[in-house]
Amino acid sequence: MDAHIQVNNLNVYYGRQQALKDVNIEIPKKQITVIMGPSGCGKTTLLKTFNRFLELTDGAQITGEVLVDGENIYDREVDVTEVRKAVGLLAQRPSPLPMSIFDNIVYGMHIHRMKRDRREYKAAVKHYLEIAGLWDEVQKRLHDPATSLSIGQQQRLCLARGLAVEPEIILGDEPTSALDPISSQNIESRLLDLKQNYTTVIVTHTLRQARRLADYVIYMYLGEVIEAGPAKEVFTNPKHERTKQYLEGLF
């Protein structure tokens, strides 16, 4: 397997409580990996180690390695902002920045000085809003506050904002759980469109979404990875009893 992210002996503690227990997994390049499992199993914690967001939580301690393209992102010399530029995050709730739609997209590009002039920024804004499937809806109101958008539109805006800094990996922390069914479907089809260009890792608690999106599946339970493998194998022929029970909806 061509692994984009490789996790070695990863342990995470919140104070004394251990949230992740000796996680060793690989995440394939340019596919959608879905992390699933019952609530409290450490799905989101694992996801947050991939863009070093876990260290924003007071009292979280991490041991082990997370390699992105073979480079440990927890190395001392690593610049965390470069990690987060390369590993974008789509949060559970859409969080538009308190500025215009246009400025939301420009924000990250501007921070990394990625474009030279306003014309380039304008072109980039159009480009990423098109990718996120939002351009037609907002092209006449680019300078309206981002909060004036519907919640589903806001999430697509957040997707466009994340893509604008040219990441290689997209993380999604239950990115559709706050959305209505149609908006959810919209986000899902964006993610399916994007997977040929980006490595995507999605946390979800809905099995049906996992089945619709996953190329590769990681099943977690109580902080441990129980089973990981190509979606076809795991869904049709789970090796572990726990995975089987989960897939059958027994808990």
């Binding site: 902002t81 995050l89 920045l97």
Partner: peptide
């Protein structure tokens, strides 16, 4: 100020100071 806003800024690779300053 809700943390979501700070996280949205940090997630695109802003430093903490850029986040405070801009957001």
């Amino acid at each position: 100020v809700p943390n979501d806003l700070r996280h949205a800024s940090l997630a695109v690779g802003a430093t903490q100071w850029q986040t405070i300053r801009n957001i």
